[in-house]
């Protein structure tokens, strides 16, 4: 077992991936996910092998239905594979109980959704505090304020989601993810609901997180966005068809256009 990895598997509920970055590694071995849709069996992921080091900025691209979101859900322990193993932050989530997978989500990963999924009844500050509270971090209020300041929303603490623009709401969602203190950030089409300018703002925030040591995985169908990542994984029909640096080299965010 590599140094820094914890014993994995069921019963390893006390995940603490925040201790250093040694636990941010993501390992998927021969992961297959099949769904039964009516009489048809659909293979969403087909024998995926994937290894992501810590502090990486990874983009997962591919056409609709290629398995991008399913892959992200496997890594985020929202779903379990039909076969194969998924190991995140030293914990094998593929065979873990519901409770252990919840613990993994609480302490190792955090999500950013295309539709934000903010709590409409909570203010921006409270939404972000929720992230810190969920991760059981002390002084959640101060952490939330700091996270909102980090995404440039220090002046919008007491606004409710409906009082914020789409870009601001997504930044609140990012701040909520940051407030968890978890080392792996999973973003599913984070700019999908946003216009170009706002999308650029969001990408900048995500890149900053990767630069600061977090492992950031962004699912997108937009190849232009993928150019800012360190590594681009392309899926097609549930298989990885390419994996490496962006074609044509890593781009600066200011150079992007779509």
């Amino acid at each position: 077992m590599p140094e820094g990895e914890q014993a994995a598997g069921p019963g390893a509920a006390s995940v603490d991936a925040r201790v250093g970055h040694a636990g941010t590694r993501i390992d998927l071995d021969a992961v297959t996910k099949q769904y039964q849709v009516g009489a048809v069996e659909v293979t969403a992921l087909d024998g995926i092998n994937l290894h992501v080091d810590e502090a990486a900025f990874v983009a997962i691209v591919g056409p609709s239905g290629c398995g991008k979101t399913t892959l992200l859900n496997m890594i985020g322990a929202l779903d379990v594979p039909t076969s194969g193993t998924v190991r995140v932050a030293g914990v094998e989530s593929s065979g873990a109980s519901r409770r252990d997978r919840a613990a993994l989500r609480r302490h190792a990963v955090s999500f950013i959704f295309q539709t934000f999924n903010l709590f409409p009844g909570l203010t921006a500050l409270e939404n972000v505090r929720f992230g810190a509270d969920a991760a059981q971090r002390a002084d959640s209020s101060a952490l939330a304020e700091a996270a909102l300041a980090q995404v440039g929303l220090a002046e919008r603490l007491h606004h409710f989601p409906h009082q914020l623009s789409g870009g601001e709401q997504q930044r609140v969602a990012i701040a909520r993810a940051l407030a968890t203190g978890n080392p792996i950030l999973l973003a599913d089409e984070p700019t999908g609901e946003l216009d170009f300018r706002t999308g650029i703002q969001i990408l900048r925030v995500l890149e900053e997180q990767a630069r600061s040591g977090m492992t950031v995985l962004v699912v997108t169908h937009n190849r232009e966005i993928a150019r800012v990542a360190d590594r681009v994984i392309e899926l097609s029909s549930g298989r990885i068809v390419s994996d490496g640096a962006p074609v044509g080299g890593k781009a600066e965010i200011d150079d992007l256009q779509w």
Partner: peptide, 10 residues
């Protein structure tokens, strides 16, 4: 679902 996604138990 969002709450559960952030690891809160049922």
């Amino acid at each position: 679902a969002t709450m559960q996604a952030f690891g809160l138990p049922v």
